[in-house]
Design a protein around this nucleic acid. Structure first.
Length: 241
DNA sequence: AACCAGGACGTGA
DNA sequence: TCACGTCATGGT
């Protein structure tokens, strides 16, 4: 058992399944968490609306707390313009006024509207990574989030939390400020993907859970100011801070 | 009152 | 390639 898998097992054993990506359009149905999580269920998204909600969420959540991204999603839904077709019918300014809570609303509104047109044009076909990266406002993390959680493709999502946790543990280069620059993102992604490859289970659920678990642990313990006491990774961590 | 949050992009060196 | 500034709201 390699180090990557060891981290995964520790986190999963401690926190359990996270139920990503949360879908608020299902939040009120039985069997779902009040905020749209569905721990232990990996069949989602099923409908086109669910796929679109995730895609929308990945853009809105960029460098923003999920609670703020959720507020924008709710406002879009409550105003009946959550679908890509409805968004296309709006002006960028009209969209911007509704997605204010998730920040960068002037950037995100235009990019979201353009992405709605792109999504409609796809006609249900799953795009490849390079195609997504060519779009305005979609970088490596957002592209991989879309592919992994909306389209169930085996792309591991690397984020600043991943780099922070692995960096402090001594598994990765602790320089996590430049994870997205150059080829470092793909480098880290490759290391983790290769590590998880030894697992017997299917890739998709593991990729989905691992990223969600890293976010969870970064929130509860491995924050910018770490709270190492009680951290499920405490015993195997070098605690480089 | 700074600091951080489920980033991406443009710019100058 | 890189380091840095910009975009912006909301919670602690």
């Amino acid at each position: 058992m390699n180090e990557i898998i060891s981290v995964y097992r520790s986190l999963f054993g401690y926190y359990g399944p996270q139920g990503w990506w949360p879908l608020q359009c299902n939040a009120s149905e039985s069997g779902f968490d009040a905020r749209g999580y569905h721990p232990g269920s990996y069949e989602f998204p099923v409908s086109r609306a669910e796929v679109w909600e995730i895609l929308c969420g990945t853009i809105l959540a960029q460098n923003t707390s999920w609670t703020n991204a959720e507020k924008s999603l709710t406002r879009l839904r409550m105003n009946g313009i959550a679908s890509p077709e409805h968004l296309l019918g709006m002006t960028a300014d009209g969209i911007a006024s509704l997605i204010r809570p998730s920040g960068y609303f002037n950037q995100k509104s235009g990019r979201l509207r353009a992405f709605a047109a792109y999504f409609i044009g796809l006609g249900g076909v799953i795009p490849d990574r390079g195609e997504l990266l060519a779009l305005q406002g979609i970088g490596p993390e957002t592209a991989d989030s879309m592919l992994l959680y909306a389209w169930k493709q085996p792309h591991f999502v690397v984020d600043s939390y991943t780099a922070r946790i692995m960096g402090r543990m001594g598994i990765l280069d602790p320089d996590f400020s430049a994870i997205r620059s150059g080829k470092r993102y793909e480098h880290v992604q490759k290391i983790i993907t290769k590590g998880l490859d030894e697992l017997p289970a299917g890739k998709i659920p593991v990729f989905q859970e691992f990223h969600a678990l890293l976010v969870r642990n970064a929130t509860m313990h491995c924050a910018s100011r770490p709270v190492c006491s009680g951290c499920p990774l405490e015993h195997s961590c070098e605690k480089r801070v």
